[in-house]
């Protein structure tokens, strides 16, 4: 009996050691599944450029629906346990290390939690994007640390006011439906 018990424990140990060999020094981003939920705000993590993730030193992956939520988590929990941080390229949606990405911010860029930050693999793409939009600013990973991280929730207030002004003179300009477009309209 004892011998069998020892054998069992030994084989279990071997198995566990083998299983633990999976975690290497290099942190890899985990693929998104159908059921990922933002660690901070509980929303489903979209399978698009907005998804971000932290891989902890113990190999656990935390996923977020917005880089703002990732920042929120870091603010609360610090970086001691963090192995790596990943964001996705705006165009290709491939995972890139946050340290190597370039960011663009405008309070009216539309992201799930309204932090208004997009990430790019190439700085050129980011600049080109800003040119196309005609607004926003370019940020490096270091700039993120000093970012104010405000969510754009004020916008509706302004719009409400505007609507009330328009109420009487009925000259609401017809605009097309592009979100970026009406973001422009609201910039005063």
């Amino acid at each position: 009996m004892k011998r069998k018990l020892i054998l069992f424990i030994a084989s279990l140990t071997v198995f566990m050691v083998l299983a633990s060999c999976g975690s290497e020094e290099e942190y890899q981003p985990e693929e998104l599944t159908d059921v990922d939920r933002c660690e901070v705000c509980n929303m489903a993590v979209p399978h698009d450029h907005n998804a971000t993730q932290i891989v902890l030193k113990d190999g656990k992956a935390l996923k977020f629906d917005d880089i703002g939520c990732l920042n929120e988590w870091i603010t609360e929990n610090g970086t001691d346990d963090v192995g790596a941080q990943f964001v996705r390229d705006y165009h290709t949606e491939e995972w890139i290390n946050l340290e190597e990405a370039t960011f663009v911010y405008d309070k009216d860029f539309k992201t799930p939690m309204a932090y208004g930050i997009f990430s790019f693999k190439n700085a050129d793409d980011a600049e080109k994007f800003l040119d196309e939009q005609g607004t926003g600013k370019l940020m490096t990973p270091d700039d993120l640390a000093d970012h104010h991280w405000e969510r754009n929730m004020e916008m509706m207030k302004q719009m409400k006011e505007m609507m009330k002004d328009n109420e009487h003179n009925h000259d609401h300009s017809s605009e097309n439906d592009d979100e970026e477009e009406h973001a422009e309209n609201d910039e005063q």
């Binding site: 609507m163 609401h172 439906d177």
Partner: peptide
């Protein structure tokens, strides 16, 4: 894409 887009009041 949208089935119906509404603007205005």
């Amino acid at each position: 894409t949208r089935a119906i887009l509404v603007e205005g009041n």
